[in-house]
Each structure stands twice: as structure tokens, then as C-alpha cells.
């Protein structure tokens, strides 16, 4: 039963909740990952790689901007979404909020790879979205993501040829893989400034089922995760990296669930690092007592 998202004023509360939940998880992932990527600016291994990662950061931030903007139709603006929202109300997966240890370029390129493959799959599942703006914006985003994936793959292949490089990749993989799985976790509906409800974690799965049922996204999270595993596991193994999943196990789903970190981001539980990051990124806005965000570009069309 696809919902009708042609007009934003006639949305039922179920439709609105599904829309807000989907778009905050999409937008927050991009926004927070971009923020982390910018940590590499003026700190990357070479001038050329510095430029390339800065490019990807700007792309992701541009994507966050597009996703957040869809929520303008239901009265939520950048101010409310990025600068005045309670940090506990963000719905990105913890993969994107973890800080980079100084010099851990293996983390940067591996995280990028794990994320970008997941992103490509979810974008594919949004191309036929019942929401016209979502469907329209996917194309522009996907054509930028192709470069990100290829860039990450090239670096992984390059580093994995070297013993030291491969060892560092393995460390990063062991640490990041559980967090990457959070990308496929259902998100607790964000409050977005509304009065605090019971904020029921159990609702998350039901709301994600609504997202699919209403045609906002055409694949389930389980399907996306399984496709993602079928791509990243063989590729990483081809680089002689060990992935902590046994896909021939009797109950692979349960094994994967057991790997998930305690705080998953999607459930509103975050690592401490996120709160520090949020504090820093809203610092100027708060200290200058701003009540609105500056726009430089025109609002996205379509």
C-alpha cells in the first residue's frame, strides 16, 4: 500500500512518522560522516589525497542538505534539524560518528568503503520511492557516490598490498565492522522537537516496516544488509582481510545481531564522541546567539 507523498499537507501521522524517520537516518548519516571526513583536511597523507577526501566530504554534506530539505515540506528546516536538535535525537549509525584516531588513514578508507557500498544499495532502493522528491534526488547523489566507492577501493587495494598497511586495515575492520552493521538497524522515530513521548525503541522495526509498506524505500533493511554482505565480505577477503562473519553458519542473522555494538545510533543511543562532536559543530551558532542558519545557495529544486 504505497502512500501518496505528492502533497505534504495531507500526510497521515503514520506517513509523516515514516518520512521523518527515513530522512533523518539518511541525512544524519551523510551530515555526520561529512563532518568526520573534514577532520582529514590539512592532515591527509599527501596533498592530493587531502583534496580528494575533502571533495567527498563536500559531496556527503551536499547530500545531507538534499535529504534535510525534503523535510522542509513538513516544516522542519536546517536550523531545527542540524543546529537546534537535541544530539540524542540524531539517527545516524555509530559508524559515522566515531572519531578518527590521529593518522588512522586505514580507518578513513575502510569506513568510506563500508559506508559507500551500503549507501549505493540504499540509494538503489530509493530510486522508485513513492516520494517524488526522494526519487528525483537519488540520481544526482548516486553519480557522485560512484567516485567515492572507486576511490575507497583503490586505496584499500593499495594499502592491502603492504604488510603494515594490511595489518592496519585489519585492525580498523575489527573495530568498524560491528558499527557498520548499525547502518542496517531500524531507527527509533526522532522526536524532532515534538513533546517527548515514550520514544519506544520497539517502535523502530514497525516504523521501518511502514517505510517499505508506504513505498518510501523498496527494500527492507534485512535485504539491504544481506546484499551488502554479499559485496563487502568477498571483496575484503580478496584482500586477505578476515571478516568476523561466517556466512555458512547455521544462523548467520543471529550471529550478526550479536556483533552489534551497545549504542547503535539509530536507536538514539550514541557514543560519547558524538556529543563532543555536536558540541563543537554548534559552537559558533550558540556562542553568537544565532537563531537562523545562513544560506548561500538556493533551495534545491525538484
Amino acid at each position: 500500500m504505497a502512500g501518496s507523498f505528492e502533497a505534504s499537507d495531507g500526510l497521515s501521522s503514520r506517513e509523516r512518522r515514516a518520512l521523518e524517520t527515513l530522512l533523518t537516518r539518511l541525512g544524519d548519516d551523510e551530515f555526520v560522516l561529512a563532518e568526520r571526513y573534514t577532520e582529514w583536511q590539512v592532515r591527509a597523507p599527501s596533498l592530493e589525497s587531502d583534496l580528494a577526501l575533502a571533495n567527498n566530504a563536500q559531496d556527503e554534506l551536499g547530500h545531507a542538505r538534499l535529504w534535510y530539505d525534503v523535510l522542509a515540506d513538513v516544516g522542519l528546516d536546517e536550523r531545527a534539524l542540524a543546529y537546534e536538535r537535541d544530539p540524542a535525537d540524531f539517527r545516524h549509525g555509530t559508524l559515522v560518528e566515531l572519531p578518527f584516531e590521529t593518522g588512522d588513514w586505514a580507518d578513513a578508507v575502510l569506513r568510506s568503503y563500508l559506508y559507500d557500498v551500503a549507501e549505493d544499495l540504499r540509494l538503489e532502493a530509493l530510486t522508485a520511492s513513492s516520494h517524488p522528491k526522494i526519487a528525483d534526488r537519488v540520481g544526482k547523489i548516486r553519480s557522485e557516490e560512484k567516485y567515492h566507492r572507486e576511490h575507497a577501493r583503490s586505496w584499500l587495494e593499495r594499502l592491502a598490498e603492504d604488510d603494515d598497511g594490511r595489518g592496519r586495515l585489519q585492525d580498523a575492520l575489527d573495530r568498524l565492522f560491528p558499527h557498520a552493521l548499525t547502518l542496517f538497524e531500524p531507527a527509533v522515530p526522532p522526536r524532532l522537537g515534538a513533546k517527548a513521548s515514550e520514544n519506544d525503541v520497539a517502535k523502530a522495526a514497525a516504523v521501518d516496516a511502514d517505510v517499505v509498506d508506504l513505498g518510501l524505500r523498496t527494500a527492507t533493511l534485512e535485504e539491504l544488509r544481506s546484499e551488502w554482505l554479499s559485496i563487502v565480505v568477498p571483496f575484503l577477503e580478496s584482500l586477505d582481510l578476515a571478516v568476523a562473519v561466517d556466512r555458512d553458519a547455521e544462523n548467520p542473522e543471529a550471529d550478526l545481531d550479536a556483533l552489534l555494538p551497545d549504542a547503535r545510533g539509530r536507536d538514539g543511543a550514541h557514543t560519547e564522541a558524538w556529543f563532543d562532536l555536536h558540541d563543537e559543530l554548534t559552537r559558533t551558532y550558540r556562542e553568537l546567539g544565532r537563531t537562523e542558519t545562513t544560506t548561500i545557495m538556493e533551495a534545491p529544486d525538484g
Binding site: G62, H63, R65, L66, I141, M297, E298
Partner: peptide, 9 residues
């Protein structure tokens, strides 16, 4: 996509 496909103005 040289120069990107989203707004970079």
C-alpha cells in the same frame, strides 16, 4: 562527474 552533480555553487 567532474565538479559533481549536486549544487556546488
Amino acid at each position: 562527474a567532474f565538479g559533481g552533480t549536486t549544487d556546488k555553487s
